[in-house]
Design a protein around this nucleic acid. Structure first.
Lengths: 321, 321
DNA sequence: CTGTTAGCGCGTTCAA
DNA sequence: TTGAACGCGCTAACAG
């Protein structure tokens, strides 16, 4: 039997005799035959592996999205391959090289903190590998993007704190070079301008968000002349530090200090007081991102489409303000 | 210039003229030329992508190991590609198929809860792709394995609880079909036999460990005739539920109930009381696993070597017992 | 329905 | 030092 007949049989090509096909399949099963994807890809055939690049796997927001995407992809016959940039532009570029070399079908990405531009991603697209950005995006490149309403929700968080009687609301967030944190800051500034122009305090944490940084930033803030009576925190790691240090200093939440945090605290049920939080719709982000990359791979959308989808975070009211 | 000269130049083959090589490299850079890995692999060349299969990305133990492995791999020029089996044997087999089809250099794996045997992994090896198991392993296959001293540490946890005066120590753990939980149970049974033969209570949770399951299992246990005065819990998710429900029922930890949990609670600093925990050396597990897969890939170890490395978990004493 | 041929991009021969 | 020819495993196109 000729190998091209075998090839057809294995792909259930209708032109092959049933008996022949069954014979081939039986033999293949018997001998654990596997198609060689390298050869398939060499011929330019499609490929069902999608690369997912995240700054940090070890972070609830991203690991939730990874899980969701993996499940979605399986249902559609795709495989998600996860890469961690570790917040480093350099590693991100290395990953992009690997993706090019391994000829992935598409890429879903949330960029590292210090990624200055999207040249490496343009390159991907020039080589025919479509890219979808989510959450943290490159602004100098036209590509489908899934964004969170950070500006709006921060504004609303401020508004909510005010409605609870807090007057001196501070904002602890990340570097303005990332759209996510810049937009939160804009929302904060807008709210300050609207509601309480007399108090304004933003703390920008350039380091990685951590428990320790949260402790020290909070203590410094508390002991400064700008002592706030409420805080909007951009990260659960910082928030843990804030809660801990507040406890150390004998500060009562929410009596002495109101608190709203972006992100959900693991086991938030057993932390007292339970922290009011801004929850981002991870599942929706995953769904939209996957839908977009699938359409790009199938060329239903051009790869340089300027397409921005916004999803809405929401405030889950608990006990901290 | 002939393409084979170009090929040589790109690989820094010594037989090519320096001037020619520089010319080629300049041109390649200029045009963003990338080598086509499919073609390379088709020729049977090596490949620097290592697949990592975990039951759940969204779980501290595994996401820590993923992070560690990713960093280690980068330092050695490898790329880690993470796959989530979602605790499903079926998905695990699909992943193995993908790995075969994409011809990964090697696989590091911790198996799903319902994986009955290691046939799919034997297949990998028969096809020349080496496998290293860590934590949850297949017992019917000879391959390098990285194991945690679960039996011993559970025994010690029991011993420690006893030293604190607890008499009725229960064990909440997972299905005995997984080596990890079976060994913990053995450690528990050994300790019971040694120290306190009059009380013995194991609860095996077959479902996925979750906050809700933790709540209900604990409440049931507390209201049963076998009410314990201390618990060793196999999962932080279960533990959260236990803590929550204990609070609901007005049970004081550690006064009414002693508690030791496997795994670290996120933000454990702000949970009161702080929970005494059994911490597994994620970094060491990652290092040993990577070292083993690297040696297997380089054929410094035969792929079917029966090689078991044991790492030691340790008890971090906090306030819950 | 099945066989034949050609070529995907690369690296390895062998020859020049 | 370079070029030409071949084949890795597969599939599309064409021929039978």
């Amino acid at each position: 039997m000729h190998h091209s007949t075998v090839s057809r049989a294995l792909r259930n090509d209708s032109r092959v005799n049933e008996k022949t096909r069954d014979q081939v399949l039986a033999y293949a099963r018997e001998h654990d035959y596997r198609i060689n994807m390298s050869a398939v890809q060499l011929r330019g055939e499609s490929n069902n592996a999608i690369a997912l690049i995240v700054p940090n796997i070890n972070h609830t927001f991203f690991s939730d999205i990874i899980s969701q995407l993996t499940d979605l992809a399986y249902q559609k016959g795709f495989v998600i391959s996860v890469f961690q940039s570790n917040e480093k532009y350099k590693q991100e570029k290395q990953i992009v090289n690997t993706i090019i070399e391994h000829n992935f079908a598409g890429v879903i990405v949330s960029i590292a903190k210090d990624t200055p531009d999207g040249k490496h991603f343009s390159l991907l697209r020039n080589l025919g590998i479509p890219v979808v950005f989510f959450d943290r995006v490159c602004e100098d490149i036209n590509a489908p993007k899934v964004l969170v309403n950070n500006r709006e929700i921060t504004y609303k968080a401020f508004e909510y704190l005010r409605s609870k009687g807090f007057k001196k609301i501070a904002h602890i967030t990340g570097t303005a070079s990332i759209n996510v944190f810049r937009n939160r800051e804009t929302g904060y500034q807008d709210a300050v301008a609207k509601f309480e122009p007399s108090y304004r305090k933003s703390v920008v944490v350039e380091n990685d968000f951590s428990f320790e940084i949260g402790k020290s930033v909070f203590e410094q803030l508390w002991n400064s002349p700008d002592r706030p009576d409420a805080i909007i925190s951009s990260s659960v790691n910082l928030t843990s530090g804030i809660i801990f240090q507040a406890r150390v200093l004998g500060i009562k939440i929410p009596d002495d200090l109101g608190l709203i945090t972006f992100g959900s605290m693991f086991a938030s049920e057993i932390i007292q007081p339970q922290i009011t939080s801004i929850e981002q719709p991870e599942q929706e982000i995953a769904e939209i991102s996957f839908d977009l990359i699938e359409k790009l791979i199938n060329k239903e959308i051009p790869a340089d489409e300027k397409l921005e989808k916004e999803v809405k975070a929401e405030i889950i009211v608990r006990e901290s303000c």
